[in-house]
């Protein structure tokens, strides 16, 4: 079944609720290797996103919703996640502009655009202890699931599983990007907060309630 505006909003609301619930956990992860604000930042950003969508009313154009999310995040999150997630949502929104219902292949296109946006903005690659370590395997898992004939729901579940696996795989990595890179070897042994919030967003997309 195609994903329409209401389902997109439900995903964003689920994401906002879970980011709010997990804000202390995300901030604690960030306290170990960063500036201890990731949970508060993401919570603030998604709270602003939901307020904006509720105040203005969500358009039927799913691409327009994603662009609103991106534009709101870049000015409300505060940390590097603002421009990074902001770019991801803006690029996905541009890729899906004008669509009122997303087919499984559209979701793949949106995920791919988001990944490319984050990589370009952060000038980062997989293996550098960032959100890319969760997102890239997730996009690959989604594509592989579709290619093997699975539907969007199964493919999103595979994507969320791959994101969580990628998230856990950041623990032994040495950070070379972002605030954690100033810590050098001290960043080893901690799970990356950006990869964690990324996996959270993808799990929220896979869960229907």
């Amino acid at each position: 079944m195609a994903v329409e505006s209401a389902a997109m909003l439900a995903w964003l609301q689920r994401s906002a609720s879970r980011l709010h619930e997990q804000r202390t956990y995300l901030t604690d992860l960030d306290a170990a290797i960063g500036d201890a604000d990731h949970g508060a930042n993401m919570d603030r950003g998604f709270t602003a996103v939901m307020a904006k969508l509720q105040a203005e009313g969500a358009p039927a154009d799913v691409g327009a919703i994603l662009k609103t999310v991106g534009a709101t995040l870049v000015s409300t999150v505060g940390g590097a996640s603002g421009p990074l997630y902001g770019t991801a949502f803006l690029r996905a929104g541009m890729a899906l502009a004008g669509k009122t219902a997303l087919e499984p292949g559209d979701i793949e296109e949106g995920l791919q655009a988001a990944l490319e946006g984050i990589k370009a903005r952060g000038k980062a690659q997989r293996g550098e202890k960032t959100m890319i370590d969760a997102l890239e395997p997730a996009v690959q898992a989604y594509s592989a699931a579709l290619a093997s004939g699975q539907d969007a729901k199964a493919a999103l579940a595979a994507a969320a599983d791959a994101a969580e696996e990628g998230m856990r795989a950041t623990i032994p990595l040495l950070a070379t990007k972002g605030r954690a890179s100033y810590l050098g070897e001290r960043s080893v042994g901690h799970q990356d907060p950006g990869a964690t919030s990324c996996a959270l967003l993808l799990r929220a997309a896979a869960d229907e309630s």
Partner: peptide, 13 residues
């Protein structure tokens, strides 16, 4: 700072 004056940066600002 952010739009609300907290530590961070704001693209709009």
């Amino acid at each position: 700072g952010t739009d609300t004056g907290e530590l961070g940066t704001s693209m709009a600002k």
